[in-house]
Computed example of a mutant assay.
Amino acid sequence: MKIIILSPLTIPLDSSFKKLIPNEPLAYKKVHPHPWVTNLAYGLSHDKNHQVHIVTLTSNVNKDIVFIHKNISYHLLKSSPKFIREITLNFIDNLKVQKYIKSLNPDIVHGQGRQTDGLSAVKSNFPSIITSHGEIENELLSYKKNIKYSIKKYFENKVNKKMKFAIGVSQDTVTNLKKFLPEENVFLIDNALDPVFFDKYNLEWNPIVFYAGAISPRKRIFELIKTVEQLKDIKLHIATQTPKDNTFYKKVIEYVTLNKLNNKIIFLENLTPKQIAQEISKCLCTVLISNFESFGMPLAEAMSIGKPVIGSRTGGIPYLINENKTGFLIEPGNINQLKEKINLLHKDINLAKEMGKAAAENAYNRWHPFKVAEKTLKAYTLAITKGN
């Protein structure tokens, strides 16, 4: 099966990858790694009967680039200037993608999200499926309802009308997709994790709360820092890919410095998945208390290694956590609840170990790339059969 995955710029966090495009330093500037895309592609490409192509439009390259990394073909297509994209609503770039898809002649086109990639997939004239990570109202909680919001809502509405098959990454997302599609055309398939999170680690139970993700208001980073600030013997390790010149990140650093928390709040930048896994193996628990998460990959990563988690009761997070068995759920922004749950795990390491063990039991079947690929291929097959 020849598979095209349309995705935002997707760069594996792998040093060997950089050697493939040494003359394109822009490819590594302000990149969201979108690990679920590369993880799924890895699972799909493991079967030599499948050809996997990740196609992305990006302003981060000076020309179109194609190369192969770990049996996956990456196609980085140079996009139009920003003002052209905005005034044409990506019309010119969409035509470029359509032409490129036709040249590859795939069996299935898989669009990531209900934005431009999803729209290119459903307009490709090939069997298609999209993966939705949630509605715009939820995904853009950190945005105001301005022109940017309106444009994204426009694309979402177009995809909702044209899509025939869709994958939701949580029960919350699936429920939304069923408003637009017959139930049999909607699939609940979790995001795939990097295989390193299924390696065996010597688990330590140090008084460290771990967070991995963006430094942004939506993630409630200040609430997390202020909670740990009140816990005498607990440290917070923050692993992030957010650039240091980010305005909000600067405010966070300033707060930590002014309050002399540099030995208590530790920032770990640009870690590889393996390094993140090693950090998780040494912590007490992983925490994600965002306003909204369609899935919550950092929680799944921690659970796969065998650590308990604490997450906010919103979006797809309750779908991940078996409450009081594999982790705890708190109301978004409730610092007292967060402090209580961290203290509970800190004072009762046996409870933390018990919850971590329970968390790891079903992780492989839910989140390993090979298992996610199996489920995704079944969805592809149905989309190809019924789509034709």
Score class of each variant (00 low, 15 high):
residue 254 E to P: 05
residue 347 K to A: 11
residue 349 I to L: 15
residue 307 K to N: 03
residue 303 M to Y: 07
residue 302 A to C: 06
residue 288 L to W: 08
residue 319 Y to E: 08
residue 302 A to L: 12
residue 308 P to A: 02
residue 273 P to Q: 02
residue 319 Y to T: 13
residue 299 L to H: 03
residue 344 L to H: 04
residue 283 C to L: 03
residue 288 L to R: 09
residue 332 P to Q: 10
residue 287 V to S: 04
residue 267 F to S: 10
residue 309 V to K: 01
residue 256 V to K: 06
residue 258 L to T: 09
residue 339 K to M: 00
residue 294 S to Q: 08
residue 324 N to P: 08
residue 334 N to Y: 05
residue 265 I to T: 09
residue 344 L to I: 11
residue 274 K to Y: 15
residue 259 N to L: 00
residue 295 F to S: 01
residue 311 G to K: 01
residue 323 E to P: 09
residue 291 N to E: 15
residue 298 P to S: 14
residue 258 L to I: 10
residue 264 K to F: 05
residue 296 G to E: 01
residue 260 K to F: 00
residue 256 V to C: 02
residue 329 L to W: 09
residue 277 A to V: 00
residue 331 E to V: 01
residue 317 I to E: 12
residue 345 L to P: 00
residue 317 I to T: 12
residue 293 E to P: 02
residue 261 L to V: 09
residue 281 S to E: 07
residue 268 L to Y: 13
residue 290 S to R: 07
residue 300 A to E: 07
residue 258 L to G: 02
residue 327 G to M: 05
residue 254 E to K: 14
residue 273 P to C: 09
residue 284 L to A: 00
residue 334 N to M: 06
residue 274 K to Q: 14
residue 337 Q to E: 03
residue 320 L to S: 03
residue 310 I to K: 06
residue 257 T to I: 11
residue 342 I to H: 03
residue 287 V to Y: 03
residue 347 K to H: 15
